[in-house]
Design a protein around this nucleic acid. Structure first.
Length: 418
RNA sequence: GGAGAGGUUCCCGAGUGGCCAAAGGGGGCAGACUGUAAAUCUGUUGGUUAUACCUUCGAAGGUUCGAAUCCUUCUCUCUCCA
């Protein structure tokens, strides 16, 4: 099998392919242009969205040419695949904004530079709004719609499910539009392969069929496993909500912690999928005598480095070590920690614990803070605060003239006094 | 257009006049145990200037001493019929 294709299989990406042998031959014959779509339904992608793009990275490194397609046009509609509910409609301005920020985020794993080095393929980012928004309904029906059989579409699993819950007509059209995307990318960019999550199988196959019917070359589809966590939680969901790539929405420190806390059973699998470490290197973490926590630290560090850069990864790691390993790294260790600045004056007067905690991320409201304190989970430095009426003043400052607030064992917050 | 079912707190889902800030489960948070893991057990889970008060059961009115519960109108979803 083709080496790059084999890499994806070995790393645990691949779920299914329309034709392994033919695709392998095609990839052996030279660089293949391929694409994956991303829907700009939000301002930021979360890590669950990233699986196909990590795969894209590996294929680009092997010399193939990626097209990252942002669905500025299809986002107007909403994809019913794998969802039981109708997606809410977004405004045109929102979609535009989302497209721009998503393109930027993809740059963390895909090299969009003009002249990529080291034998990499040339990557481009396109927006299907460019060809979808101007479509004429009647023309589209005549030229594209006639190739689709409703009977056949209804046999797809994704539609079957939705038929029970209700499916709007425009969502039903999604498959036609995605197929048309593939057709356009093939016609204008020589794209021969579409990759994507397993839920995209039906849409991908339809695209291949459309291209064939319109006289294009044989194209291929490659789908990836839906990544799940061994505890059954959805990938990319944390107690704080989705694990977004945008540091504004999900801090690099929390991001690091998310990976640092994955289940034992997931570590090696995630190292293969979500880092670029060579498989030989990952293999050493599978050995029984290796401390699993080292593997988790490596996973967290590598993943944070890819998404947020080396500096942030270092900060997050240092902060984590300072907090959990008891290493007294001084102020340096606190840099990656979420923080808040309060006035010196205010502290000297004294601040109620509840007030203080509710102003941080540790408690959402006063009541929330009250529960935390009453439950014995509120700490300042190494002092447990269990009386909600406690007044926090400068006597609580540590040797650096700061307060380190803690909720439970894992959530820290730094109060800087000025 | 006609007939019926329904919209409850983060989610699912009980509740058909006061004992309802609303059972139960899930999820979350905290405590215990641990390895910053999993599993398990316990507590907690609308807000506030907090043994009380305020806001919440699709929306707006009404009946009542008192409404998530009864009535009216509106609205949305689903099912069946044409």
């Amino acid at each position: 099998m083709n080496k790059a294709l084999q890499t994806l299989v070995d790393r645990g990406f691949v779920k299914a392919c329309t034709d392994y042998d033919a695709l392998s031959d095609l990839m052996n014959a030279g660089p293949v242009t391929f694409y994956v779509g991303a829907d700009p339904t939000g301002k930021s992608l979360h890590i669950g969205h990233m699986v196909p793009f990590f795969a894209m990275h590996h294929l680009q490194n092997a010399g193939h040419n990626p097209i990252a397609l942002v669905g500025g046009g299809t986002a107007m509609i909403g994809d019913p695949s794998g969802k039981t509910e109708m997606r809410r409609m977004l405004t045109v301005e929102q979609i535009k904004k989302n497209c721009a920020s998503i393109k930027e985020q993809l740059g963390t794993v895909v090299d969009f530079s003009e002249h990529p080095e080291g034998g990499k393929g040339k990557a481009v980012a396109l927006n299907n709004a460019d060809w979808l928004n101007g479509l004429n309904y009647i023309t589209f029906l005549r030229e594209i719609g006639k190739h689709f059989s409703v009977n056949r579409m209804l046999t797809f699993e994704s539609y079957k499910q939705r038929l029970e819950r209700g499916l709007s007509f425009i969502e039903f059209n999604y498959q036609l539009l995605q197929s048309y995307d593939f057709y356009i990318l093939n016609r204008d960019h020589g794209c021969r392969l579409q990759i994507g999550g397993d839920d995209q199988w039906g849409n991908i196959v339809s695209g291949i069929e459309l291209i064939r019917k319109l006289g294009g070359p044989e194209c291929y589809g490659l789908t990836f496993n839906l990544i799940t966590r061994s505890d059954g939680h959805k990938m990319g969901k944390s107690e704080k909500g989705a694990v977004f790539l945008d540091p504004e929405l999900f801090s690099p420190y929390d991001f690091y912690q998310y990976w640092r806390n994955v289940n034992d059973a997931d570590v090696v699998r995630f190292l293969k999928l979500f880092t670029f470490l060579p498989l030989e290197e990952i293999a050493q973490y599978e050995r029984e005598d290796v401390n699993i926590n080292e593997a988790k630290d490596r996973l967290a560090y590598e993943q944070t480095k890819i998404i947020h850069g080396e500096e942030e990864a270092e900060k997050a790691r240092t902060a984590a070590k300072a907090m959990f390993n008891g290493a007294n790294l001084g102020l340096v260790g606190r840099e990656g920690m979420p923080s808040l600045v309060i006035g010196k004056q205010e502290l000297e007067t004294g601040i109620g614990v509840l007030d203080l905690f509710s102003r941080t991320d540790l408690a959402a409201t006063n009541s929330d803070a009250r529960r935390l304190v009453a439950g014995g989970g509120a700490w300042i430095g190494d002092r447990r605060v269990d009386n909600p009426k406690t007044l926090i003043d400068s006597s609580y400052l540590d040797e650096y003239g700061e307060l380190i607030l803690r909720a439970g064992k894992k959530r820290y917050f730094r109060i800087i006094v000025e």
